Simulated scan of single mutants.
Amino acid sequence: MSSAENKTRPTGADVSAFLDGVEPARRREDAFAVLDMMRRITGEEPRLWGPSIIGFGEYHYKYESGREGDFMRVGFSPRKANLVLYIMPGFARHDALLDRLGKHKTGKSCLYINKLDDVDRDVLETLIAESWAAMAKKYGA
């Protein structure tokens, strides 16, 4: 693989088996809840991307630099420190939702949540659904 290729790719690993091994139990329960939420919103089956990211759907990107590849449209990872949700379009147009979400932090396309009880699940579902729709509009259904 050249350095220009995306190192995070879909694997054939079993998503449920991966989540069964997540500790602590609270993080595992939250991960299964997000899995169900994303499966329902996207209508897609999850795939493990790399060793620890559960992704739904796929899109092809190409940057002006010439770098291109494929990545998930939405996903999450039950990390040790937080539950990380990947909201690929970012958060620029989601200020109102984020204001209502509850306790969280954001990065460029990452939403960090300590536990689902810290956030409003309806608002979280809306954020995921809007992200999914924006990716479909930009990259095709």
Rank of each mutant, 00 (worst) to 15 (best):
S3A: 14
S3V: 15
A4R: 13
E5S: 15
N6H: 13
N6E: 09
N6I: 10
T8K: 14
T8L: 15
R9K: 10
T11I: 11
A13M: 10
F18G: 11
L19M: 12
L19A: 07
D20E: 13
E23V: 15
P24Y: 01
P24D: 07
P24N: 08
R26C: 13
R28V: 03
E29R: 12
A31C: 06
A33D: 06
M38K: 01
M38Q: 04
R40W: 09
T42E: 00
T42V: 01
E45K: 08
E45F: 02
P46T: 04
S52F: 08
I53E: 02
G57M: 02
G57Q: 02
G57Y: 01
Y59C: 07
H60V: 09
H60T: 13
Y61V: 08
Y63L: 12
E64H: 15
G66F: 09
R67M: 10
R67K: 14
E68S: 10
D70L: 15
F71A: 08
F71Q: 03
R73W: 00
G75I: 00
G75R: 00
S77M: 05
S77D: 03
S77G: 08
P78H: 00
K80G: 11
A81M: 13
A81G: 10
V84K: 09
Y86Q: 02
M88W: 03
P89R: 03
R93A: 13
R93N: 13
D95C: 12
A96D: 11
D99E: 14
L101H: 04
L101Y: 04
K103S: 11
K103M: 10
K108N: 14
S109Y: 06
C110A: 15
N114G: 15
K115W: 13
D117F: 13
D118Y: 12
D120P: 07
R121Q: 06
V123M: 06
L124D: 02
E125W: 00
E125C: 02
T126E: 08
T126S: 11
L127W: 05
L127H: 04
I128P: 02
I128A: 02
A129Y: 05
W132K: 00
A133V: 02
A133K: 06
A134Y: 03
A136M: 09
K138Q: 12
K138N: 10
